[in-house]
């Protein structure tokens, strides 16, 4: 499957593993937070990189071992569920998370600009939506007013 990562279309090198499903022999799994909480002692040493997928009602403080995770995937169950924007921002600004921050679920091109400003660098687009069109969305705005993950200075300090 292809995703957008760092403003490029790339082949996804992680594998989503559903709860109850067999873990892969090798590679980089993304497991749910529930599974991670149960199995993290074995997961972390077994794979070169582990990702955790969190529902939109979870907070960064619900995820242990943040520093050891290669990826966090935040779910957007609906276009209009905006909790993940705050989650992303807190993960980066407050918890210093430096791994891949990925938006999954109902992700459309018109969210990408905001998501990127909130610290997301990878995007699994809603199935059926062209990724190329997503790349254009990053370039739609060249000026921003607020401080965010991409720039801690509000515009009045850059003007």
């Amino acid at each position: 499957m292809q995703i957008i990562r760092d403003r490029k279309i790339v082949e996804d090198d992680f594998i989503h593993v559903a709860d109850g499903a067999e873990l892969p022999e090798s590679g980089k799994p993304i497991v749910t937070l529930a599974r991670f909480l149960k199995e993290r002692a074995t997961l972390l040493p077994r794979y070169p990189a582990v990702g955790v997928r969190i529902a939109s009602d979870k907070l960064p403080s619900d995820v242990p071992d943040l520093a050891k995770l290669a990826l966090i995937a935040v779910e957007f169950p609906k276009f209009t569920d905006g909790r993940g924007y705050s989650t992303g921002r807190m993960l980066r600004d407050r918890h210093g998370f430096t791994g891949e921050l990925r938006a999954v679920g109902w992700v459309l091109r018109d969210q990408l600009f905001y998501l990127e400003r909130c610290g997301f660098n990878a995007f699994e687009m809603k199935p059926g939506k062209p990724l190329e069109s997503g790349l254009e969305a990053f370039k739609e705005f060249t000026v921003t007013y607020q401080a965010a993950v991409d720039d801690p200075r509000p515009f009045y300090r850059r003007r």
């Binding site: 276009f79 209009t80 569920d81 905006g82 924007y85 705050s86 921002r89 600009f113 905001y114 998501l115 400003r117 909130c118 705005f141 921003t144 007013y145 607020q146 965010a148 509000p154 515009f155």
Partner: peptide, 11 residues
Amino acid sequence: QWSTFHPEFAH
């Protein structure tokens, strides 16, 4: 200005 396209609070 602050509220215009605030990335965190659009939804």
